[in-house]
Design a protein around this nucleic acid. Structure first.
Length: 565
RNA sequence: GGGCCUAUAGCCUAGCCUGGAUAGGGCGACAGCCUUCUAAGCUGUAGAUCGAGGGUUCGAAUCCCUCUUGGCCCA
């Protein structure tokens, strides 16, 4: 049942516009009292040389109603359409009841989409920036998968380079060959911070780190062994954190495994005159034609830069998966880098440049300023999880006396719910300041607010199961709050599609706040269990469907929907 | 010096791509609502020259130009 199409059909009986043009024009009135769809008559007024108000009034008289569109009304320059509410209620609710958790999903598509995230450096633990990255990657994967695409999630470890050697060097000097006595990536990170402190007093360390890198490049056994050991610590630690966010990768690439062959591609392209040499003998890509600054792709001493790896990895990944689209989730400070990368790949004749996309997200800073790993002024991912879980635990304890197992389960669901939602509700491109004290709240536009609505419905349905063995009357939803809910439920598939098309999980988060809010208004206005049998059944059906959609949307944001809070 | 992004109430934010009917929310403040389905909730009040100026248009928070602010990047 497509109500909008019906509006188009009715309009076409009187006006000579294409279906697609009319669809573009149709909007939803700001207030439900004004109707369900509106057709603005401004554009017609030029052609017909009449005031839009007049046109609206004439059309209102001429167009005949149908079973689906019950009434139409001219309101100023708008022609407003009122749909048959009970047909709408019935089709929407029945659809949700039948499809359950697949309501809003897209038809299976052939298109394969690769999502690459969070691509950490293996010399320090994951921080708040990675948290944003991981949540975007994870939820976008969920949304695209739900929309019917084949999603491939890959990670890339930046596991070689001078920054890695710095942690290694500090460990070599002051680590006393000890095994980690804490989460192993944090242990590695401590030596990175230690290096930064020591190098301030002794500049020679810098040279020493550089020598270590050279030894590594030459395959020095001792250096390689240390490198292997510490990288394993780092990656094992990351894996634990990925698990907390429910992240799994289809494939993990390591920079160290590919950096040699990457150089060959560059040298080869130099021979073909695709690249050139600059005054300092670096190999560069000349991008002047594209209004981009030139980019070094291989240093004069033959060492590779990030760009060298990225060119090669783009090819490797494509050969591995033959994906149609490839989305890199990387911070906005690398906007130029990715513009250059995609242009360079184009120059090199890479087949799939149209499918490349940099999903850029804004910086997160702290009230004190920018986060700096070297100085230890970062919000650590694991500590953050611990903190929000602890806060959630305290909130639960204020309200309930429950056993430890249940308590820790709920605390984790609610704490992580608050964290995920807080970060995902912002548009990816927005910068924001993270204030640890104020940011993770459980009231207002938050994850727990949405979860709470879900838990309330669960509680109602525990007390009275939804009975579908007898007929449900779908024309009993007379309250404004009920109508608002029905409209929102019907619109969910459009929201999901928009989130998928624009790579914006934030749209789902906004929708969920609105739906939860509409439910809470309804909840306070209308009783369910005390109502007469007919209305009780209808309302149980309504809240059942709201619960399904809340859970559905939360899932897309990788947030659990607790039955009890 | 060049490029990209940003600006909406005390604070955070939606709307901007695709111009349209009174600029939505949230936090905080103030005033109310728990013997009734979970008060992590609900209702109400106060709070916005949509950064500034100009232009396009019947109509601009939305499109164009200039300037300012803050951020990121390149040299």
């Amino acid at each position: 049942m497509d109500f909008k199409k019906e509006v188009v059909k009715l309009l076409q009986t009187q006006i000579k516009l294409l279906e697609s043009d009319i669809l573009e024009l149709i909007e939803v009135p700001p207030n439900p009292e004004m109707g369900d769809y509106a057709f603005p008559c401004f554009t017609l007024s030029k052609e017909m040389k009449k005031a839009p108000n007049m046109i609206a009034e004439e059309l209102a008289l001429k167009i005949k109603t149908s079973t689906i569109i019950k009434r139409l009304e001219a309101k100023g320059p708008y022609l407003n359409f009122f749909i048959n509410k009970s047909i709408f209620s019935e089709t929407t609710l029945k659809k949700i009841f039948q499809q359950k958790q697949s309501y809003g999903s897209g038809t299976a598509k052939k298109e394969k989409i690769m999502i690459e995230y969070p691509a950490p450096n293996t010399n320090k633990p994951l921080h708040l920036g990675h948290v944003r990255n991981m949540l975007l990657g994870k939820s976008l994967s969920n949304i695209l998968d739900f929309s019917g695409y084949k999603v491939i999630q890959v990670n890339l470890n930046n596991d070689r380079g001078i920054h890695i050697c710095k942690s290694m060097l500090a460990y070599k000097h002051w680590g006393n060959k000890k095994a980690p006595d804490k989460k192993s990536d944090h242990y590695v990170g401590d030596f990175y911070v230690l290096y930064a402190q020591k190098v301030k007093k002794d500049e020679r360390l810098e040279l020493e780190a550089y020598e270590m890198l050279q030894k590594w490049e030459k395959g020095n056994k001792e250096v390689r062994a240390l490198w292997k050991k510490m990288n394993k610590w780092a990656m094992n630690g990351f894996d634990e954190t990925y698990q907390k966010f429910g992240i799994k990768f289809d494939k993990v690439y390591n920079e160290s495994e590919h950096y040699e062959e990457a150089k060959k591609i560059v040298l080869d392209a130099l021979k073909k005159n695709i690249f050139e040499k600059d005054d300092s003998n670096n190999i560069i890509a000349n991008l002047e034609k594209f209004n981009l600054s030139n980019k070094v792709v291989l240093r004069e001493d033959g060492t590779s830069v990030y760009m060298t790896q990225d060119i090669n990895l783009a090819k490797i990944k494509f050969n591995d998966f033959k994906m149609d689209r490839s989305i890199y989730i990387v911070g906005s400070e690398q906007n130029l880098h990715f513009k250059q990368l995609f242009t360079i790949l184009d120059l090199l004749g890479f087949k799939n440049t149209k499918g490349l996309h940099h999903l850029s997200y804004g910086m997160i800073s702290l009230p004190e300023g920018r986060m700096k790993s070297r100085e230890g002024t970062v919000v650590d991912a694991d500590n953050l999880i611990e903190e929000v879980t602890k806060l959630a635990r305290e909130e639960i304890k204020k309200r309930h006396e429950i056993d430890e197992d249940e308590l820790s389960k709920r605390a984790s669901q609610i704490g992580m719910g608050a964290l995920n939602f807080f970060i995902l509700k912002y548009e990816p491109s927005k910068d924001f300041t993270f204030n640890p004290k104020e940011s993770v709240s459980f009231e207002g536009e938050t994850g727990p607010y949405v979860q709470y609505a879900h838990a309330r419905i669960s509680s109602i349905l525990r007390k009275n199961k939804l009975d579908v063995t007898t007929n449900i009357n779908f024309s009993l939803f007379k309250k404004e709050s009920e109508q608002k809910l029905l409209t929102m439920l019907g619109n969910y598939p459009n929201v999901v599609a928009e989130a998928a098309n624009n790579y914006k999980p934030s749209l789902i988060a906004r929708f969920l706040t609105d739906l939860a809010q509409a439910f809470n208004e309804f909840y306070h206005e209308c009783n369910i269990l005390q109502e007469v049998e007919n209305l009780k059944k209808s309302r149980l059906m309504l809240v059942y469907c709201i619960k399904e959609v809340l859970k559905n949307g939360l899932n897309l944001l990788a947030i659990k929907a607790p039955e009890q809070m």
